[in-house]
């Protein structure tokens, strides 16, 4: 009887500590999975694959209705200011891609009804490459690219 109880106690405490270890190792972190976050698109290692996962298509049309502002030379790849603006009607979302990064998709912005197609942020670039902006409209994907020379990469350690 005493032995049996001791066994239960042992089992119980072992189980509890295993869960504790899993939580501290980040395996069971609550809220890790955000329903809308496009996980596959962000994990994609090619621009086309990322666009396919994100927008269902990688066929973009270069358009002067999409304007992308980024420096010609970025001395620090860890902080590259990028501004994307468009005057196209009915823009639904804007994606920012650093073509030379291991996982090229940096960010995707869903635009609400009142939003103007304009976003500005700062991104990391691993090496000299194009920064690509893709604007999703009713009739397809419009894009613009801007080459940025990176003298120190911003993704390595």
């Amino acid at each position: 009887m005493i032995d049996a109880k001791r066994r239960t106690l042992l089992k119980g405490s072992l189980g509890a500590s295993a869960i504790g270890i899993a939580v501290s190792a980040g395996l069971l972190t609550p809220g890790t999975v955000l329903a809308n976050w496009p996980k596959a698109a962000f994990a994609a290692t090619e621009t086309d694959a990322a666009l396919n996962d994100l927008l269902g298509s990688a066929s973009t049309e270069t358009s002067d209705q999409v304007k992308i502002k980024a420096p010609d030379i970025a001395e620090n790849g860890a902080v590259v200011p990028v501004t994307v603006e468009s005057d196209v009607a009915g823009a639904k979302s804007i994606a920012i891609i650093a073509a030379g990064n291991g996982t090229p998709l940096i960010a995707s912005f869903d635009l609400g009804a009142d939003a103007i197609p304009f976003v500005s942020t700062r991104i990391k670039m691993a090496k000299t490459a194009d920064v690509i902006a893709v604007v999703q409209t009713e009739s397809g994907l419009l894009s613009a690219a801007k080459p940025v020379k990176v003298t120190i990469g911003g993704c390595g350690g």
Partner: peptide
């Protein structure tokens, strides 16, 4: 506006 980001920001 809703933004989805990677560690590339």
């Amino acid at each position: 506006m809703t933004a989805f980001w990677s560690g590339g920001v």
